[in-house]
């Protein structure tokens, strides 16, 4: 399935009609450096587009993860509790939360547009 990106460097991808997964971009993991901890949402939480649902920490930085979608968290990636470094190793294959909700492409970028974005400014 196709990934859509938010300006705040999260991606979202549909699994089926009502379920999406959310992760962070390769650019984001690279900018953060070695990720050491993820403070994640909990199952049952409501997430709102553009609002924080978790924090990702590297050795000397912490960054909020904003939700690229509205909906309800139905699953969190438990592997990340002990091995947050998966986000460095395979950012595009590692989802953080699974959400019951629908992608709104009008608020997001396609992968092509996101990769073309000048992210340093």
């Amino acid at each position: 399935m196709e990934k859509y990106y938010a300006e705040s460097h999260e991606w979202v991808m549909a699994l089926d009609e009502n379920t999406v997964v959310v992760g962070i971009s390769d650019y984001a993991q690279h900018a953060l450096g070695d990720i050491v901890f993820l403070s994640n949402a909990e199952v049952g939480d409501t997430v709102t587009f553009g609002e924080r649902f978790g924090d990702v920490e590297s050795v000397k930085a912490v960054s909020e993860i904003l939700s690229p979608v509205d909906g309800k968290v139905v699953e969190v990636n438990k592997d990340l509790e002990d091995t947050p470094e998966l986000l460095n190793a395979k950012p595009l294959e590692t989802w953080i939360i699974k959400v019951e909700g629908k992608i709104d492409p009008s608020k997001l970028m396609t992968e092509e547009d996101y990769l073309a974005l000048d992210k340093d400014h």
Binding site: V36, F37, E57, S58, V59, K60, A61, V62
Partner: peptide, 8 residues
Amino acid sequence: LQAREQHI
């Protein structure tokens, strides 16, 4: 665990 700290 410095990411918890104030200056960051």
